[in-house]
Nucleic acid binder design. Structure first.
Length: 442
DNA sequence: AAAGATTCCAACCGCTGACGA
DNA sequence: GTCGTCAGCGGTTGGAATCTT
């Protein structure tokens, strides 16, 4: 396959984006959504290929992007996730609200690899360099291949995704190297479907990371044990932040290094609230205040060099029309603190149908939810802890195994949130097909 | 101050899988 | 079943910024 078809067209610009181009793209997407990317440049008056527009939006213009340097917590989380997921940057990025895969990939290649090496840890295997140098792992290089995903993560044994077969039998054993016990974590939903949470990866690092997901610690309810992964990460980090329990990383086989020095309670406290807010927002109908959310002001102030320099005038003039659109549409931002580009379980469109179809509203069709955000919201308002529990199991099941599909949610969600009432039928048949494929039932 | 080296990261490239005709 | 289109992903590149000499 050669270049993307749209790139064959003549006179397409390449290279860095100008402020004017950014403004055009931002304005267009803010107003109309992206729809089909290949048509965006034409509609927005840009001489770029759709692919380039898409990347620019995802990596730079999206209003929920954090920008700025990575915090220590974020870096630690990336390292931890990389130990488990390898170079699957999009999945790693999904755990870091406001960060893009590109950004994380760059950080990894430029900084984190070095840091790990300095600490005597091989960034590929996450094992001690001495061990790797002695060839202990060379026979089993850490795989980055996609097939790893099928064997390491969550499989709903009763509801395999159409077109895929369950990779493992029920009751698959979670082999934990260096662990005295193997662990299988099964959960059942209301229909008796068994979800097996498993990790059969050869990686030996960060087992605590996953064990935390299933730990029966003192966290309230079952939430910690069954939270979607991206939420659990925070709990995981909370563990790491504990000064009373100086748990070193990679405690099983790797050279440990104490990360506690890198965590401060202040930093953690700033790290935790976004989770709480988004989680509450999704599961309990909690609406964070505007101040809790990325605002246009912070977006404008933090973000790009363009807003800081030249484009502010245009941006401001623009804001009279767009800001009304953006700021008045509180859900657009409030709900997106962690969901733009994220397979976020706080995404109501994604979670509500899964749960409700099976336990509360099976007679309500997917399309009704998809087409009616209010129905979604209403359904979510009725979440009970138990239903939440089931919802999370489900979401976890599908989260990592269907990540690419999850990504599509963000686009649907994005569109719906941009024009939630103007066009209640935003979710096209094509999207429903994709969702069907992703979740296995409509 | 200037030149070279290094770092960083935005953008591109190529591949894959899903989907529709 | 085949082909074309599209979105998404991970690897790579190139140039700007920064650092070192």
């Amino acid at each position: 396959m050669g270049r993307h078809s749209c790139c064959y067209k003549q006179k397409l610009r390449k290279g860095l984006w100008s402020p004017e181009e950014d403004e055009k793209l931002l304005r267009h997407i803010t107003k109309y959504g992206h729809g089909c990317w290949s048509s965006v440049p034409k509609q927005a008056g840009l001489q770029r290929c759709g692919k380039s527009c898409r990347l620019r939006w995802i990596n730079y213009l999206r209003p929920d992007l954090k920008r700025g340097t990575f915090s220590q917590e974020e870096e630690n989380l990336i390292i931890e996730l990389h130990a488990v997921l390898g170079n699957r940057w999009s999945q790693i990025a999904a755990q870091l609200p406001g960060r893009t895969d590109n950004e994380i990939k760059s950080l990894w290649n430029s900084c984190l690899k070095k840091k790990l090496r300095q600490r005597g840890i091989d960034p590929v295997t996450h094992k001690p360099l001495s061990e790797v140098e002695h060839g202990e792992d060379k026979s089993q290089p850490r795989t980055n291949s996609k097939d790893m995903a099928s064997s390491e993560l969550n499989i709903n044994t009763n509801n395999p995704k159409p077109g895929t077969s369950p990779v493992t039998p029920r009751g698959y054993q979670l082999e934990m190297e260096g662990s005295p016990t193997s662990k299988t974590v099964n959960s059942s939903d209301n229909n008796g479907n068994t979800t097996t949470n498993l990790m059969a990866s050869t990686t030996t690092a960060s087992k605590g990371f996953f064990l935390d997901k299933f730990s029966t610690n003192s966290q309230p309810s079952d939430l910690v044990g069954h939270l979607p992964v991206h939420q659990l990460n925070y709990a995981s980090n909370a563990r790491l932040s504990s000064t009373s329990n100086p748990t070193p990383w990679f405690t099983q086989t790797t050279q440990a290094f104490d990360i506690n020095s890198e965590f401060s309670s202040a930093a953690m406290s700033s790290f935790l609230p976004p989770l709480t807010a988004s989680f509450l927002s999704a599961s309990m109908g909690y609406k964070p205040s505007v101040a809790d959310s990325p605002s246009m002001a912070s977006f404008t102030a933090n973000g790009s060099r363009y807003w800081e320099t030249g484009a502010s005038a245009n941006n401001n003039s623009n804001s009279s029309s767009n800001s009304t659109e953006l700021q008045s549409n509180s859900s657009f931002y409030d709900n997106n603190s962690s969901s733009w580009g994220l397979p976020d379980c706080s995404t109501p469109e994604k979670e509500a149908p899964l749960h409700l179809m099976e336990s509360q509203a099976e007679d309500i069709k997917w399309s009704e939810y998809l087409n009616n955000p209010l129905l979604m919201a209403a359904a979510l308002q009725n979440q009970t802890p138990q239903s939440l529990y089931n919802m999370d199991i489900k979401s976890e099941t599908h989260f990592l195994t269907n990540n690419s599909s999850n990504s599509m949610w963000t686009h649907n969600q994005q569109q719906q949130q941009q024009e939630p009432l103007q066009n209640p039928n935003m979710c096209a048949a094509k999207d429903i097909h994709r969702l069907t494929a992703a979740y296995g039932h409509v």
